[in-house]
């Protein structure tokens, strides 16, 4: 197993922490992992992205030009990364604020209305976990048990009481994902 993905959106959407939780879940499953963020001026309010690699084998390059999966949370990121999904790969996006939707026919495209779903949950901060749920529905590369372990490792212990709420958001994401282009 080797999954190379990019998560891209606005700073503040929880892009980096979602990547970290996924990476930690991979460690809990004895996988090799790498988490490579953009750390430029874009972190301060603009676009943010993180490359996450989970693999059964040692990871060589953390810098990639093509991805198995792109999780896209704003228009700029969609414009930048749609072309960089490998043929046959997966693109998941949140349609909120998207005016030009993805057009490729050679990849699987899914939609997750995570802004709406996290609002329904009454917790906008669970946004990134709804998105993570959608991804795990399509690619169950880590088990829910290990995701919970990953959450425990990623979140300071004073916030551990929020883990059940995060689990719920992941489950909501798994239910709410919609297929746009099936290969």
């Amino acid at each position: 197993m080797k999954e190379e993905l990019i998560i891209a959106g606005f700073g503040g959407q929880g892009v980096l922490s979602m990547g970290k939780i996924l990476a930690y879940s991979g460690i809990m499953q004895d996988q090799e992992v790498a988490w490579m963020p953009s750390y430029g001026p874009e972190m301060r309010g603009g676009t943010a992205n993180v490359t996450v690699i989970l693999s059964d084998n040692r990871i060589s390059s953390p810098i990639l030009s093509k991805f198995d999966t792109a999780i896209i949370l704003n228009q700029q990121s969609l414009d930048k990364f749609e072309s960089r999904v490998k043929p046959g790969g997966l693109l998941i996006y949140d349609p909120n604020g998207i005016t030009r939707h993805p057009e490729r026919k050679d990849i699987t495209i899914c939609r997750i209305a995570a802004v709406d779903e996290s609002a329904k949950l009454g917790n906008a901060k669970a946004y990134n976990m709804v998105v993570l749920g959608a991804f795990l529905k399509m690619k169950p590369i880590v088990t829910m048990e290990n995701v919970v372990k990953g959450l425990k490792k990623s979140i300071p212990s004073r916030h551990h009481h929020l883990i059940p709420m995060n689990e719920e958001a992941i489950n909501v994401g798994m239910q709410a994902i919609e297929m746009v282009n099936e290969l």
């Binding site: 970290k20 790498a34 490579m36």
Partner: peptide, 10 residues
């Protein structure tokens, strides 16, 4: 370099 400094790994 910045890659090795900023990247998270096991």
């Amino acid at each position: 370099d910045g890659v090795i400094g900023q990247m998270m790994e096991k």
